[in-house]
Amino acid sequence: MGVNKPTPIVYLVDDEFSIRDSLTLLIESTGQAVRSFESAEAFLNNYDPEQPGCLLLDVRMPLMTGHELQNELSKRDINIPIIFISGHADIADSAKAFRAGAVDFLEKPFDNAVLLERINEAIEKDLAFREEFTKKNLIQERINHLTAREKEVLSLIVKSHSNKESAKILNISNRTVDVHRASIMEKMQAENIAELITMVMYCETPSSRSKAEIFR
């Protein structure tokens, strides 16, 4: 029996009730779940990072603004796709939002069809990110279960060293390298060396992690 995946939710944060009400009705008419909040603080107090979805966010609100909420989510390492909506935006507002990672910026009044399309794209983006994150974590867990010596051998495999070269570098016998390679293949659940290397390279995220961190 498969595991039930959480249903994506569109989180809507806007201090105007009429906007929240109309957008909730519009989005729910497509069968999409919506949770609306009148403030950024209310959203932060109720948001579950494990829940997939996207955030429809007003720019100018009392207390914490949309930009400030975006920054707070970044500080908490929360990567929910954000679509900004605003009736009083300028170029500086949109530029600031995009620089901080927003996926879109729509000015009120906006075309409903365009909004719904952007929401679908944002949710697909979030689901793809979560799938990739899960896959990388699974690979990293397998690497973490390797012994220190196996990690050394794996690092040399990724660098395309032969068994003979690896044995010389590590000052061990060819037979010992063979044993380690077989154990690595089993623990990593790789069918062949090409798949093994692909798994390690996939696990590596150039922007934030190095091979040294992967093999720690």
Rank of each mutant, 00 (worst) to 15 (best):
C54E: 03
D104V: 03
H88A: 07
R76V: 04
N45G: 12
F84E: 04
E107P: 03
V59Q: 15
R99C: 02
A92Y: 07
D90R: 07
C54A: 07
A100F: 03
H67T: 14
A95F: 08
F98V: 10
G53T: 12
P49L: 03
R76S: 08
S74R: 14
C54G: 08
I85K: 02
S86I: 00
V103E: 02
L57A: 15
F105I: 01
F98K: 05
E68Y: 10
L56A: 02
R99H: 05
G87K: 04
A95K: 11
V59C: 15
K75L: 12
A97K: 05
H67S: 12
K108S: 06
I80M: 08
M64K: 15
L57D: 09
V59W: 14
L55C: 06
E50N: 11
N45C: 05
S74Y: 06
I85C: 00
D111C: 03
L63A: 14
S86N: 05
K96C: 12
M64W: 12
P109K: 03
F110K: 02
R60W: 14
L56E: 04
L63Q: 13
L69P: 04
N45W: 00
F110V: 01
S74W: 03
F110Y: 11
A97T: 06
F84I: 07
D58A: 11
F110H: 01
L69I: 03
V103T: 10
G66N: 01
L55G: 05
L63H: 15
H88L: 05
K75Q: 08
L57H: 14
A97I: 12
L69F: 10
N46Q: 15
I85V: 13
P49A: 00
L57M: 15
Y47S: 07
C54M: 08
P49D: 01
I78F: 06
F84K: 08
E107C: 11
